[in-house]
């Protein structure tokens, strides 16, 4: 087991470093950071001076090493655009995003799992059809549109929740629903097909021959097997929510990491963008790792393989 954790952890670190170096290099080849800092119309001497002063004339690998060394000591650099330490910026925005992502995940699980399970228990029944049509429509409806409709319905027509912002828990209800709904189709379908697969397997037939039926058959025999792919997909979905809920954050005017990233990109704020990418990648990689570990705990074949 320890062996497994170490191996996966090592791989995760490798992936994170590769992606962050890739984006770092891309930025340096695609844009000229000295020009960005100096401004569009600055004279060439000034740009050159900034280039030398900031060390942009050194090889990319050296610059990356330099930056990474800082990151390891908690120094993510200073934002060109916000004129603020990147660490502070991220701290300010991360709280909103984490809260939003976690509550959205709860919405997804609360809708998708029961719906998927009941659909699998009675394939081709009305529950199944309801679940599948929910999935199709949820997949077809764009996030921003659903967000706007929610605002019109629950904030304007019936003013139950606030229209925008991130001050109180009430501000999070509508965005969580919108963001959570976007993952429902994938998770629901996976629960349904996964459970259907498991239920038609030989070992479930064995369990039935032993006298298992009803909820015991599902919970004590089938569910653990069906959970494996669901855990993996939930991790990816949570990663998306933590990294890229740009649309939802924009529609509800929430000051999360997604919006910070977009604005930093528009303003070519390289230190912020780089730091955010590193954080997004690390989050993703760590979540996948967590999913793998949960799956290893659930399934002895992974644990001992």
């Amino acid at each position: 087991m320890l062996n497994y954790v170490l191996r996966r952890g090592f791989m995760a670190l490798l992936v994170a470093l590769t992606v962050s170096f890739g984006t770092f290099a891309l930025f340096h080849f695609a844009t000229d950071p000295a020009q960005t800092i100096a401004g569009e119309d600055a004279p060439q001497e000034m740009v050159d001076e900034i280039r030398e002063q900031y060390g942009f004339d050194r090889p990319v690998l050296v610059q990356y090493g330099d930056w990474l060394g800082g990151v390891l000591q908690g120094d993510f650099g200073k934002s060109y655009f916000w004129k603020q330490q990147v660490v502070e910026l991220i701290q300010e925005h991360a709280k909103v995003t984490i809260l939003l992502a976690l509550s959205a995940l709860m919405v997804t699980v609360a809708i998708a799992l029961p719906l998927g399970i009941s659909a699998a228990l009675k394939p081709n029944s009305w529950v199944d059809r309801l679940a599948l049509s929910t999935a199709v429509s949820a997949q077809a409806i764009p996030n921003f549109w659903l967000g706007l409709m929610f605002i019109i319905l629950f904030a304007v027509t019936f003013p139950i929740f606030p229209v925008s912002g991130d001050a109180t828990w009430k501000h999070y209800v509508l965005p969580s629903l919108v963001l959570g709904a976007s993952s429902v189709p994938a998770v629901m379908r996976l629960t349904r097909t996964g459970l259907l697969d498991v239920l038609s397997s030989d070992y479930i037939r064995t369990a039935r021959a032993k006298g298992f039926m009803g909820y015991r058959l599902i919970l004590q025999q089938a569910m653990r097997n069906a959970l494996l792919p669901i855990v993996s997909v939930l991790a990816v979905q949570l990663g998306h929510k933590l990294g890229g809920s740009v649309v939802t954050e924009s529609v509800f005017s929430m000051n999360g990491l997604g919006r910070l990233a977009v604005e930093s990109i528009f303003n070519s704020d390289i230190p912020t963008v780089q730091s955010l990418i590193l954080i997004f990648v690390l989050t993703f990689v760590l979540l996948t790792l967590a999913a793998d570990l949960i799956n290893a705990w659930l399934d002895p074949r992974i644990r001992m393989g």
């Binding site: 070992y203 479930i204 064995t206 369990a207 021959a209 006298g211 653990r224 097997n225 074949r301």
Partner: peptide, 22 residues
């Protein structure tokens, strides 16, 4: 009846046991 008064053994030993339980 099942598993109690009538026991059953299936053909595929490789897949007839639940892989995630001891």
């Amino acid at each position: 009846v099942r598993g109690q008064r009538i026991g059953m053994i299936f053909q595929e030993p490789m897949t007839s046991l639940n892989p995630v339980y001891s």
